[in-house]
Amino acid sequence: MIFDFDSEEYVSILNFKGGEGHFDAKMHDDGKCKIILGKVEPGCTSGLHTHERNAEVIYVISGAIALTYDDEEEICLSGQCHYCPEGHAHAMRNLSDSEPAIMFCVVPEHHLG
């Protein structure tokens, strides 16, 4: 199955997980896995949330994001990957004042059926 993200428009999600601003996404969700090309504009964040029944992998394509992972802060730069396993919490924010952070995210659901 091929997803052509270049031919899709971003959908803006306001206050994603209780965060500030918006998270822009090109998302495919079949109920078993979410595959997302995401964009976080300067000044935007996601809220802190726990992955109770899934995990998330975030690969930063461009820019840099700060992640609160459990009780620690991590910086994830272009070319790096953040992993939030099931049972852990994270939140993110764009570190730039002028450029969006672009990321590729995969959220597989662990508890189906």
Rank of each mutant, 00 (worst) to 15 (best):
G113H: 10
E41Y: 12
V11Q: 15
H28G: 01
F3H: 05
C33H: 01
G21Q: 06
I61Y: 07
K34P: 01
K26M: 07
E72M: 13
P100Y: 13
H51L: 14
K17A: 15
C44K: 12
K32E: 04
M1P: 11
C81I: 10
G38T: 08
D71I: 12
F23L: 15
S7W: 06
G79T: 14
L48M: 12
Q80L: 02
V106L: 08
D29M: 02
E74Q: 07
A64Y: 00
C105P: 00
S12V: 05
S7T: 04
S96D: 10
D30S: 03
Q80N: 01
L67D: 09
M92S: 14
S96P: 04
N15R: 05
T50R: 13
V60W: 03
V60F: 02
G87V: 05
G43H: 11
I35R: 15
H22I: 02
P85R: 04
I13R: 09
F104M: 14
C81W: 00
D97P: 00
M92W: 10
G31W: 11
G18Y: 11
A25Q: 12
G79C: 10
A64I: 01
A101L: 05
V107D: 07
G38K: 01
F104I: 00
H49T: 07
M27S: 09
E56T: 10
H88P: 00
C33N: 12
D6T: 14
Q80G: 04
H82I: 14
P85W: 03
I102W: 03
E99P: 05
L14S: 10
G19Y: 12
F3D: 00
F16V: 01
Y10E: 05
F16E: 03
D29H: 08
E86Y: 03
Y83W: 13
N54D: 14
M1V: 12
M1W: 12
A101K: 05
C105R: 04
E56W: 08
I102R: 04
E52S: 13
G113E: 15
L48K: 13
N94A: 04
I65H: 04
E109L: 11
M103W: 11
G63V: 03
E9W: 03
M1E: 15
D6F: 07
D70L: 01
